[in-house]
Design a protein around this nucleic acid. Structure first.
Length: 740
DNA sequence: AGCACGCCGACT
DNA sequence: GTCGGCGTGCTC
């Protein structure tokens, strides 16, 4: 009984003239494998889940009190907890989840705790606002400003001084005068909720039969109040959102909290509007772009249980819910659910685990499910719910390939006449066309016509991409850039540099030449003005303020353009050629999503794919609308090659300050790798080099069949090569279901 | 992950 | 002579 770490102040019946000092384990935001031990001062009461402030080195940091044994630490080192925050306890399920996630991702638990605690000042209650309330009585002289004040405040509700002055159209001194006469009293207005509570009956959706069945099954899952995973698989526009909203409504009716996960870019005004249309209020938002103030309030109110519904990016998974009853993962196949820094995790898989720990249902939704989820559904671990028809007036666009060998663009151009002809007609009708090309900049390769010199990045050897708008040659791997030179650095010839291949800027140039009167918008992630500007541009397009939109993959997600009746994919083959085992799957998902941007209004719409391989299974699956054969093939392929979810378990991400250092680390890692017939580590030469957050890194693959093997292997590796420890991360790349 | 301590180059 | 670069090492 004593060894368990539930500590509270002595309740009198405690014996002890010299009672033992209480020590508790506290997880602090630090990459340590174990919690640190802290003294609990007299009179302080903490228990597992308490959020505390503790001294750590020279600073004070937040921490979470956890369960379990404390380490034996040199008593001289022990410090006392500085403060217990006036904050609800972190739910035991979340602590369990945190420890599970740390173990699964092979990250220090403190780093997972850090993700939960990454809200600097939300741990104390939001201070109430000073306000005034009318207490009755008449002013000495009822002037017209005074009358106007009483008109507003007469009902006895609390007002802020400035707020009341503003609505009454008087200066604040008028209110001071009335207060001096004793007509107002000071009150404290509690901090307002960050969002209004949802009304599950606000606008019950009218669903098709198909949708009704699907919704009923999800509602059943919610009613069962136990863990389950449902995979809703339905074509773009089949109304998946309306269907899972019914499950959301039921969980809310049960009084429980709900989390809807979305890929960051899909968290648009449009999603929030749809939610509002159904529930009469907005969900609380959670994403990296959130203002710090709102962030704190959302965190706090989620912890208090007052916020019932959160729509958030992957990090919302680590919010301190009190009574979570449902998670929906929309666009579950989206690679943006993978976090690839600090703690490496896939939010979709973690959501499944969170549901398992919390004993509640998880809903995965996608028009193009991941192979992993398909296999889980095939094998009966997930329930598959299929939506076949497109909803209401939304018709699927007609999809066709343009065979670039038979209908080639003019020399030096990239748009086939077969595409530009339709573009012209579309614009003439006053409708919008979208050109999709997943390549930023003007041209992916620049070379000298005279000597053949190719511009290459000095630090990572990938081609430099010309950005004509900025006048720079840029490396998309590492961020290196230089001005576009006038002369070839190799042979010195002037004005003979030639751009090879298209990027969105070059396509925009071509479209401008073809349609000089059209209003053209280029959208790519490197656009000046950042996410805010991007959101504004997307809104503008929805309102019809552009004729032609040219964009990289960020146009594929989340946003619906009601007047978009043509989608042209400039290079549908792009992405099929690289060595990524998921290339076909990704291309299929991306093309599906981008062509789905057309035809949301019932107008006749068209998707055209420029390709040199019209017979490729991906193209066939897209234009026939029949994905089953494609999935079957991909699943067989995965199984044959022992790829996830059948085989390969993990990638090691090894990094360094520069390319040479990253390479050295990778080699050291390989040397240290224990011999094992079950497992092998790829060498740096076979691995792609990437530049992320200021560091170069290789992704090395470990092949194997059992997770326990991987873990033992990793531990052995780290013991043998302690020097590389800080540069090594593991991405576990398999569905968690088999480990639950 | 922070942050301090600590030891070598260009400046008020 | 100091300010400041970031290398190393520690935090209950």
């Amino acid at each position: 009984m004593m060894q368990d770490s539930f500590f509270s102040p002595d309740q009198g019946q405690d014996q002890a003239p010299h009672k033992q000092a209480k020590i508790v384990p506290v997880l602090v935001p630090l990459p340590s494998e174990r919690p640190y031990s802290y003294l609990v001062p007299d009179g302080m009461s903490v228990q597992p889940g308490s959020v505390v402030r503790v001294p750590l080195g020279p600073r004070l940091v937040p921490g979470i009190v956890v369960d379990g044994e404390v380490d034996k630490v040199d008593p001289k080192k022990l410090k006392s907890i500085a403060e217990v925050f006036d904050c609800p306890l972190i739910h035991p399920d979340i602590i369990k989840f945190m420890l599970w996630a740390a173990d699964y991702t092979l990250s220090p638990p403190g780093m997972v705790a850090r993700m939960i605690l990454r809200v600097p000042t939300a741990f104390d209650p939001e201070p109430p606002i000073a306000g005034l309330r009318y207490t009755g009585g008449e002013p000495e002289r009822l002037t017209s400003p005074r009358a106007r004040v009483l008109e507003h405040a007469g009902n006895g509700l609390a007002w802020t001084r400035t707020g009341l002055a503003h609505v009454a159209g008087v200066s604040a001194t008028v209110i001071d005068g009335l207060k001096a006469q004793g007509l107002f009293e000071d009150v404290f207005i509690p901090a307002p909720p960050v969002v209004a509570p949802p009304d599950t009956n606000f606008a019950r959706a009218s669903l098709s039969e198909d949708q009704r069945d699907a919704a009923d099954r999800l509602v059943e899952a919610v009613d069962a109040k136990r863990f389950s995973v449902s995979l809703i698989d339905g074509v773009t526009g089949s109304g998946k959102t309306e269907v899972y909203f019914e499950a959301v409504a039921r969980a809310l009716e049960q009084g429980r909290q709900v989390l809807i996960l979305l890929p960051e870019i899909a968290l648009t005004q449009q999603f929030l509007d749809r939610f509002h249309d159904r529930f009469g209020s907005k969900p609380a938002e959670w994403h990296s772009d959130l203002a710090p103030r709102s962030r704190e309030r959302v965190w706090r109110q989620v912890a208090e249980g007052t916020v019932k519904i959160v729509a958030g990016a992957r990090s919302a998974l680590f919010l301190p819910f009190q009574d979570l009853g449902l998670i929906v993962v929309d666009e579950e196949h989206d690679p943006a659910y993978k976090q690839e820094d600090r703690v490496f995790y896939n939010a979709r898989d973690m959501a499944v685990v969170r549901g398992h720990i919390g004993g509640f249902p998880v809903v995965l939704a996608s028009a193009t499910p991941s192979i992993e989820s398909q296999v889980n559904a095939d094998q009966g671990r997930y329930t598959r719910i299929k939506l076949y028809s497109r909803y209401a007036d939304a018709a699927l666009p007609t999809l066709k390939t343009i065979d670039m060998r038979r209908s080639p663009p003019p020399p030096g151009r990239f748009l086939s006449p077969a595409l530009t002809e339709v573009m012209g007609k579309t614009i003439e009708r006053g409708e919008q066309a979208l050109l999709f090309l997943n390549r930023r900049g003007y041209a992916p390769l620049t070379l000298c016509r005279v000597c053949g010199h190719r511009f290459q990045c000095p630090s990572c050897s990938s081609w430099l991409v010309e950005h004509r708008f900025r006048g720079q040659l840029m490396c998309h791997q590492c961020g290196y850039h230089e001005p576009v030179p006038e002369a070839c650095p190799e042979c010195g010839t002037l004005d003979h540099l030639v751009a090879c291949g298209p990027g969105v800027e070059r396509i925009a140039e071509e479209a401008e030449a073809l349609f000089p009167k059209a209003r053209i918008i280029v959208l790519s992630s490197d656009m000046a003005g950042g996410v805010k500007r991007l959101r504004l541009e997307l809104e503008a397009i929805s309102k019809g303020e552009a004729d032609i939109v040219i964009g990289t993959q960020l146009v594929a997600k989340g946003h619906n353009f009601p007047n978009m009746t043509l989608v042209g994919v400039v290079d549908a083959d792009l992405g099929l050629a690289n060595g990524d085992p998921r290339a076909a799957e990704r291309t299929f998902q991306l093309l599906n999503q981008v062509t789905g941007r057309a035809g949301r209004t019932g107008k006749k719409s068209l998707g055209l794919l420029q390709t040199y391989q019209p017979d490729h299974p991906v193209m066939q699956a897209i234009i026939s609308g029949d994905a089953d054969a494609f999935y079957e093939r991909e699943i067989e392929d995965r199984e044959r090659n022992s790829l996830p979810p059948f085989g390969r378990l993990a990638s090691l991400i090894i990094s360094g300050e520069n390319r040479v250092e990253a390479e050295n680390h990778a080699r050291a890692l390989r040397r240290a790798a224990p011999h094992s017939s079950e497992l092998s580590v790829m060498g740096p030469a076979e691995a792609p080099l990437a530049f992320v957050r200021g560091r170069y890194r290789y992704r090395l693959l470990i092949h194997g069949s059992k997770r326990a093997d991987i873990q033992a292997y990793m531990r052995a590796l780290l013991e043998r090569a302690p020097k590389i420890k800080g540069n090594l991360r593991v991405q576990v790349d398999i569905d968690p279901q088999s480990f639950l």
